[in-house]
């Protein structure tokens, strides 16, 4: 592997990792605080991509599409929490798997009805469809750099909010100790809705950014969902630190696995890595719940 290729793939891996972190953050907090397995998290990612693609093509502005998509997914997340999923916090895991599995079917079929079964064209925003010369022999797509940048900024912001603010403190307290989450009293309901909406918005953001480089199509959420579950499990349920470390690791392993082995074997490499880590630490790298 040549040096430019190595750098290029490393950038790709970090970029994937950053996107996985955006998605996993919501997933792991919902897991940690509400003790809810949300298999439908990938559907919000898909929703973000579809909404952004259609609004962008309607208005001609990528940014408008992006903003609308984030708002729509946040609202969808809040709506899901209020209307359906909050009843499931105290249910069995089996019920949670069932209801979110049903949601996936509904979301996928709904998207198929609205946007059709063929992948949607989602063109890159003007000015970002070119490449940037980074190194001799290395031209890197500008849009991917933007993803990397946005992902890093949002990721850092998220990290700062959770680690440095009062709201973040409540959220962390909730993730590590559910009794304490309950003891937060009047705030708890709003915090739950807020965490859900924010998680959904982040998933939507990841989806809309992935849209132009992957295909915007029905079922696009599930492969990413599974990567995020792996990230969550490896990082430790409820741990933001863990999600960050695991997301970057999975992004790099997946990217290099695909290049060095084959796409299918590369995908397997992630699961082998996960199995190895869990055989060693069954509660993930940064266990939050004792």
């Amino acid at each position: 592997m040549t040096l430019p290729l190595l750098i290029e793939q490393t950038l790709n891996g970090i970029q994937l990792g950053v996107m996985l972190f955006l998605m996993s953050a919501g997933l792991t907090l919902v897991f940690g605080i509400m003790n809810l397995i949300n298999l439908a998290h990938g559907s919000l990612y898909m929703l973000g991509a579809f909404v952004a693609a259609s609004v962008a093509s309607l208005t001609g502005y990528f940014v408008v599409g992006a903003i609308v998509a984030v708002i729509v997914t946040a609202a969808a997340g809040a709506l899901l929490e209020v209307a359906l999923l909050r009843r499931f916090y105290r249910r069995t895991h089996l019920d949670q798997v069932l209801v979110t599995f049903g949601l996936i079917l509904v979301f996928n079929e709904g998207a198929r009805q609205i946007w059709g079964g063929v992948p949607l064209r989602f063109s890159l925003p003007a000015g970002l469809d070119g490449s940037v010369h980074l190194w001799s022999g290395l031209d890197y797509p500008a849009f991917r750099l933007v993803i990397l940048g946005v992902g890093l900024v949002v990721g850092l912001l998220l990290y700062a909010v959770i680690m440095r603010t009062r709201i973040g403190m409540w959220v962390r307290a909730g993730a590590s100790n559910r009794t304490m989450a309950a003891a937060m009293g009047v705030n708890v309901e709003m915090i739950f809705i807020g965490v859900f909406a924010a998680g959904a918005a982040l998933a939507g953001l990841a989806g809309l950014m992935a849209g132009p480089i992957l295909a915007v199509q029905v079922g696009m959420g599930e492969p990413v969902l599974i990567l995020c579950l792996v990230v969550t499990v490896i990082g430790g349920i409820g741990s933001i630190n863990g999600a960050l470390v695991a997301a970057l690791a999975i992004g790099l392993i997946d990217t290099f696995g695909r290049v060095l082995l084959s796409p299918a074997l590369g995908s397997m490499a992630i699961f082998v890595a996960m199995a190895a880590i869990l055989a060693w630490r069954p509660k993930g790298l940064f266990p939050v719940h004792g």
């Binding site: 359906l84 249910r91 069932l98 209801v99 599995f101 949601l103 509904v106």
Partner: peptide, 18 residues
């Protein structure tokens, strides 16, 4: 068909607790 089917699954989860 997946739409009504998904709704049935959701209904099942909501109402058949356990």
């Amino acid at each position: 068909w997946q739409l009504p089917f998904g709704l049935i699954v959701i209904g099942m989860a909501v109402y058949l607790n356990g």
